[in-house]
Structure formats: C-alpha cells, structure tokens
Design a protein around this nucleic acid. Structure first.
Lengths: 195, 195
DNA sequence: GTCTATAGATCGATAGAC
DNA sequence: GTCTATCGATCTATAGAC
C-alpha cells in the first residue's frame, strides 16, 4: 500500500538527526545551515521544523542523547571484582565506545560553546557524572593500596583526556587494530596510576 | 604632535589579531562576524580589510603564528643531558607554555576544520613537527632502556593529549598552582613511560 | 508532513569620499 | 587608514497551499 504522499514522520526524524550529527561533526555547528541538513535528508528546509523547534534544540538533543547513552552503556558493563580489572574495563570501554561513534563524541567535546547557558549546564552535569565513574574506581584503588594517585580528580581528567586523543588519529584499517590500541593505552594508564 | 586622523596602522593590526583570537576562542571562527571583530577593536568592518585580505587569512595567520612560536620556544628551551630530564622539561614546558596562551591553543586545535585544505596541511605539518619533538625524546629513552614504550608514536600522541586536557579545567587561583599541576602531570607521564 | 515563498536579519567583502 | 554605504548572498524561521 502506498503511503499518503509526503508522510514519513517515522523515518524523517531520525534521518534529520543523523544528517545533523554528521554535518555538525564535519564542519561545526555554526558553519552548518538548516538548508544543508535538509538537503542531506532530501527535504526542504522548512520541513525540518516539524521535528525540531530550532537549530539549537537539534544540537542539544544530539549531545544529550549521546551523554545519556554513554552513561547507560557504562552502567551496563560487567564490573569485575578487582579494582585493577574495573580500571581496565573502563579504559577498554571508553576507547571502544567512543571509536564506534566518533561524530557524536566530536560534537560533545567541540560544540559546548554553542549551547545556550542552560543547555550547557545540563551537558556539563552529565559529563561530570561520567568523570565521577572513573574517579570512583581510582579512589577505591588508592584506598586498597593498588593505585598510587596523589590527586584522583586530576588523574581522572588526565586519563579521559588521554583516551579521547585516540579519536583524533585512529582510522579503521590503519596500522593498529582496535584491540592493539586498547592494550597500548591500558598499558600506559595502568603504569601511570600504579604503585 | 597629533597624528593624521585615522592613521593607526602600527597598532590597529595587532589589536585586530588580538580581538579575533579572543572572539574565535570564545565563540568559534564560524560564529564570529567581521563586524564583531571590528566592534571589539573600535573600527568599522571595512577597515579590517586594510590588514587582512579575508576572514580565512585572519584565522590562518593566528594559527600559523602560534605554531611557529611554540616550536621556536621549545627550541630555545635548555635541554638537560639525561633523557629523563628532557622528558620532564617537555612536560613542564608544554603545560606552562599552553596555559599562558589558552586562546591561541584552543583555536589551534578547535578550528582545524575551518581552514582551507592548503592552510590545513601547513598547520598539520607544524603540529606533526611538534609531536616529533616528543617522540625523539621517547625513542632516545627506549634506546637507553630508561623508558619502556611499546609504540613511541602512540605514546607521544597520548602524552600530548593528556597534557592538553589541562586547558579544559585549569583556572588561575584555583585549587592547584601551576607548579603543582606540572608536578602531578609529570608524575603520571614519568610512570606511564617508565620501566 | 512537505512544499513554495518569503519575511527580516546578517553575512563577507567592496567602492568611493575624506 | 577609516569612514559610510551598499551589493549580493545567505541565514533562521514562519506562513499558507496542498
């Protein structure tokens, strides 16, 4: 049965978000026009406003969804008993999860300044919650004498910054496999926080 | 003696670059208009074109100058004989140099995608040259058995990414002094690459 | 739900007076 | 060297037809 012409609400919404995500990641939020997004989807610019009240909401929804998905995925990870295993799990999870969705991660880090103050505060809150997950592991390891970390807050930020750096150079089919990258970074993190 | 009215070529140029740097760092290149830059300087938009052929050149000149200054400053650093001291020198230099000019650093790694392909290639070349400076130290340390680093290229990228992370959270007058930050990061780097 | 058309604002860059 | 004025393009967002 043919649909009523122009009725595609069930698929157009996700396609708009996907197109916006790719274009924002590639060119930056401010450099991408609503017409470009519409063109990538195959509709006219006016049609976008059936799915988002404005361009800002489009950006915020992408970032919000990414942060919630990230926290939910980490919560679903099996947590080993040993604190060393938990840290290894975090390192490998972070690299694997972020490399699987580079556009979303790029936007989450590069477009913070294009959020309204209210939206910025909400994203920052989720980002801090994720950093806290790593700091909890570091604190437990310090308490057990397994880690030697003078400042767990700074160490958490340092580790995440180091892991995020993978996104700037990793390419599928490159010199190193995902497994090899995970292991290289886990080796550095393990030593950096070790006794 | 009063100058001819409107003749300020010797100071307007630097003021334009300073205003552009601050505005690009705060809001992003694409989100800043030539009128905004002119307003911050106190001239009309048309006057900017006495100093730059276009907006793109303004961005590129800022990034180019930053990269050349960075490489020149590193070349001027006193290099200890011991490879461990050379690595410590790099870590402390990088943190200190970058925290002293956060706007320039922000632009250098946030606005790469707003460069034309030719300009991008030139900036990337300088960034690679800087990364090579760290890798040279790591390779020397590995050769001497002082460092244990399975992949010096990835380790160099990881260390620089970790150090760059300081820029996202450090605030003057905060909990930690610049000296304390340098020492915390040097401690992590030293252990991460150590035997 | 998508289209065409457009309002209303702003953009980068240029021309010409002074 | 800076100004005013403006060109031509482009922007976000909306209105109304279908």
């Amino acid at each position: 049965m043919a649909r009523t012409q122009g009725s595609h609400s069930d698929i157009t919404g996700p396609r708009i978000r996907a197109a916006a995500q790719e274009l924002f990641a590639r060119h930056g939020y401010a450099a991408v026009s609503m017409r470009q997004i519409a063109g990538a989807v195959g509709v006219q610019a006016g049609a976008l406003y059936n799915y988002t009240p404005d361009k800002q909401s489009l950006l915020f929804d992408l970032m919000q969804a990414h942060m919630e998905d990230l926290l939910a995925a980490w919560a679903d990870e099996a947590a080993p008993q040993e604190v060393l295993g938990r840290l290894e799990g975090f390192v490998r999870f972070h690299i694997r999860y972020n490399l699987a969705r580079p556009d979303a991660v790029f936007i989450a880090y590069m477009e913070l300044r294009n959020l309204t103050p209210e939206n910025f505060a909400r994203i920052e809150d989720r980002r801090r919650a994720y950093e806290d997950q790593l700091e909890i592991i570091l604190k437990a390891g310090v308490a057990q004498g397994v880690f030697l970390v003078p400042d767990t807050k700074i160490a958490a930020l340092a580790v995440i910054a180091m892991l995020n750096g993978v996104l700037t150079w990793y390419r599928d089919g490159g010199r190193l496999s995902l497994q090899e990258v995970e292991t290289l970074y886990w080796d550095m993190v393990r030593k950096a926080v070790g006794v």
